[in-house]
Amino acid sequence: MKRNIVIAAVTAAALIGGGTATALAVTGGDGGGPTARHADARLSDQEVRDDEARDDDSGRDDDPRPSATEVTAPQAIAAALEHTPGTAVSAELDDEDDTGEVTWQVDVLSGGDARHSVRVDPHSGRVLGAQAEREDDTAQLRAALKGTSVTAAEAAKAVAGKGTVTSVDLDEEGRTTSWELETRASGGAEQDWHVDPHTGKVTADRADDSNDPDDD
């Protein structure tokens, strides 16, 4: 009597669970000993997607700092002034709140002695909030701005070709008032600049070149 015994349960498990399994079919009869046949079950579509997702995650950059170029300094200033009308006296990419979150911090002089710090999202340009500030130099800044024609945003645009502008600030403490700006090159090198608030003339801060051997 010919007997065909197939372990169907193994094959079914392979098809249900995904992965690769071996189904053993034992055949008795004329030819003597049992023979083994292999049935390979394919990975399910979901498992393939999971494997691809794991591969994608392996190369992901975990650096929490966003790109500084997504919203430029002039764009951040424009967003801040739309939310809080006035005169921008500084803008800086700030990550000093110990949360790892980087935002544009734009200081705006509004009516009277009012001064506000406006936070702008560096990805979308959306204003995240604003709060009133009390600073001793508010009146001094107002006095320094009298008669000037170059705004903080215009100063940032003037040096945009030098690198990514990461900060712009009105310096009224020196012999002459100027906009001070910092740029970061694609290689990470930083450079400070001065922009004349009357003429828009750009000059490099030579103090940054003090270690340059060509200066000797």
Rank of each mutant, 00 (worst) to 15 (best):
G112E: 15
G200K: 00
E92Y: 04
D56V: 05
G188N: 04
A130R: 12
G163T: 04
V48M: 13
A91E: 05
S67P: 10
D40N: 13
A144Y: 04
A13T: 10
A8T: 15
Q105P: 00
E180R: 13
D205L: 06
S149N: 11
V202L: 02
L181I: 07
D97R: 14
A79S: 14
G187I: 09
V6P: 04
E96A: 15
K2Y: 03
D113A: 12
D192Q: 11
I77Q: 06
L128Y: 04
A91C: 08
A21Y: 00
H38Q: 14
A80M: 07
V10W: 06
V127G: 01
L181G: 00
A12T: 06
S58C: 02
P74L: 04
G28N: 14
D192G: 09
G125C: 09
A144Q: 13
T22Y: 06
E133H: 03
A76D: 03
V165Y: 00
E133D: 15
P85Q: 07
Q131N: 15
A160T: 07
L141C: 00
P85G: 07
V120S: 11
G29L: 06
S58P: 01
G147H: 05
R49V: 15
Q75H: 00
S149M: 00
A39Q: 12
S117G: 13
S149C: 02
L24I: 12
K201D: 12
D215A: 13
K201C: 02
A12C: 11
A153L: 09
A53Y: 12
A53I: 10
G163A: 04
K146L: 14
E173V: 05
D121H: 10
T20K: 11
G188D: 08
D212H: 07
S210W: 02
G125Y: 07
D216L: 13
A139K: 11
A23K: 09
G125F: 04
R134Q: 14
A14S: 09
D208G: 04
T84A: 08
A130D: 12
G28F: 08
D137R: 09
P34S: 14
R206Y: 02
I7F: 12
R54Q: 13
A53D: 10
L170E: 05
D137C: 11
D215F: 15
A39W: 08
T22I: 10
T35Q: 14
D171K: 02
L15D: 02
V120Y: 05
A139I: 06
T35K: 14
H38K: 12
T138Q: 13
P74M: 07
P64R: 00
P213D: 03
A53T: 10
T20I: 10
D212N: 13
E180F: 08
S67W: 06
T203R: 08
P34N: 11
A78I: 01
L141W: 01
H198M: 06
G125N: 03
L128V: 03
S44Y: 07
T22V: 14
R54W: 05
W193D: 01
A132P: 10
D214E: 11
E154I: 01
A21C: 03
D169V: 03
L81Q: 03
Q191W: 10
T164P: 03
D205W: 04
A41E: 09
R42Y: 05
R134L: 10
T103P: 00
V127E: 03
D62V: 11
T177H: 03
E173L: 15
E154M: 06
P213G: 09
T151S: 12
G59K: 09
Q191L: 08
D98Q: 12
I77D: 05
V102P: 01
D55H: 14
G31F: 02
G31P: 04
D212A: 11
